[in-house]
Amino acid sequence: MAAPVAPVDGVLAALAARKRWRLHHIAGAAALIAFLLWCADGVNLRPRELAGALPLIGEYFYRMAPPKWEFSEVLWKPALETIYIALWGNVIAIVIGLPLGVLAASNVTRSAPLRAAAKALLNLQRSISEMIWAVFFVAAVGLGPFPGALALGVNFGGILGRLYAEALENIDPGPVEALAATGASRLQVILYAMFPQALPQFVTYNLYWFEVGVRSATVLGMVGAGGIGFELVTTIRLFEWRETGVVLLLILAMVTLIDLASTWIRARIY
């Protein structure tokens, strides 16, 4: 700087320089807007369509009122079945996910190829949605809730396995070193220093994915894999909107109850 400038002027000038839009900013913003417009065009999202759609959707929800409460008598069994599917889906997910998660955790498994294999398997299970797994298992073992539980188990096993591995990797390494120093074997160190530390995380994840499982299980019925989804699809296909309303309210009640229950349990485990 040649001439002495008052400090305020200097700061203001610096601010102005920061604010000035560079060419690449403008180009970036234009590209982003163009991309979004292209996406909107691809999915038929136009202001006029949207304006037309909203009243239509409102009308369909309006048709659901008043809910036809008598229908709930038919729904008890599929509603409970939904929860059973979620429960067993979680059990199967633990059975699949725990060993794979342990194998995928870098501080537990030393062998890099073994770790990579476990991770690849977890990724495969995770990336393919439970609905696609359900289609597959329905083809394999027939219609019903059983393939639904298997589908949830395989997909959630992949998700939980990865979360287990992360929980194990994030534990405090101090006690692990301390137990190794006593001469304890590798497996003993895992059992006595690693698992106790990661256990609360494991339980939290399982509770959360049980909630998610209930929500997912409500739609498995669409592909014939059991639960309340079958009734939901049927009422919608038959335009029995007042019955649909009852199904939706029941799902809402179910998920809310389980949400409350798991919050209650979670507060108790630490």
Partner: peptide, 12 residues
Amino acid sequence: RAINELVFALIF
């Protein structure tokens, strides 16, 4: 949150 995307999709 309670209602799955697929349920909304079905209605929409």
